[in-house]
């Protein structure tokens, strides 16, 4: 565990907490893509199956359980308790265009052709693109609430910090994982446009609004 990894994990935790609090406090999931949230739930489920097979540390297990539970709660809010506030009309990204290629790619490029490894690889590929329905929704409506942009910033920062973690681990331990690194780079690149808008607008107190 190095400082980048810890910062990345904390950023990830902050992101999921911001999202849950936003929905809970406003009693609304307006502006949030239920499709992205569904994809994240699939990501956590397929990656954290190793909770049952591999014990790493208490920290590791707690974090995995936290992400699974937060994701489950988010889905319950979006598709259950507050479903009336979910903005279906703007959440029109076709997730099969992400699920199918990620599934196929994980069958072809993986570390080992076993069920657990393929599911892990699938989750890494899927996570890298899971935010696309959310970004698509923001681009369709042309704006995002400030709280939603804080959520997106924290969520995007997490994988960017992991990139620093991987550089650190390569230097310090000669450990690297090309699948995770490649997907992490893709994931971070997808957020770049958003990061730019966040820094130039939201941090200056303006609403995140896309140019018409």
């Amino acid at each position: 565990m190095n400082i980048f990894r810890l910062a990345g994990d904390l950023s990830h935790v902050v992101a999921v907490i911001i999202l849950l609090l936003k929905i809970w406090k406003t009693r609304s999931c307006a502006g949030i893509s239920g499709k992205s949230q569904l994809l994240f739930a699939i990501v956590y489920l397929t990656r954290y199956l190793d909770l049952f097979t591999t014990y790493v540390s208490l920290y590791n297990s707690i974090m995995k359980i936290l992400f699974l539970s937060a994701s489950g709660a988010t889905l319950y809010f979006m598709y259950g308790k507050f479903r009336g506030t979910y903005d279906h009309n703007h959440d029109t990204f076709r997730i099969e265009f992400l699920l199918i290629p990620c599934g196929l790619l994980s069958l072809v490029i993986n570390h080992e052709f076993t069920v657990m490894e393929i599911l892990w690889t699938f989750s890494i590929y899927l996570e890298s693109v899971a935010i696309l329905p959310q970004l698509f929704m923001v681009s369709k409506t042309g704006e995002a609430e400030s709280i939603t942009s804080h959520y997106l910033f924290a969520l995007g920062s997490y994988r960017a910090l992991y990139l620093l973690n991987w550089i650190h681990r390569y230097i310090a331990e000669s450990h690297y994982d090309l699948i995770a690194i490649f997907a992490g780079i893709v994931q971070t690149i997808l957020y770049c446009d958003f990061f730019y808008l966040y820094i130039t607008k939201v941090l200056k107190g303006k609403k995140l609004q896309l140019p018409a």
């Binding site: 990894r5 994990d9 990830h12 190793d50 591999t54 790493v56 540390s57 590791n60 974090m63 995995k64 992400f67 570390h111 080992e112 490894e117 892990w120 690889t121 992991y162 973690n165 000669s174 450990h175 690297y176 994982d177 090309l178 699948i179 995770a180």
Partner: peptide, 10 residues
């Protein structure tokens, strides 16, 4: 060494 899935990373 074969690079592999590190179960520690989240």
């Amino acid at each position: 060494e074969e690079p592999s899935n590190d179960h520690d990373e989240l």
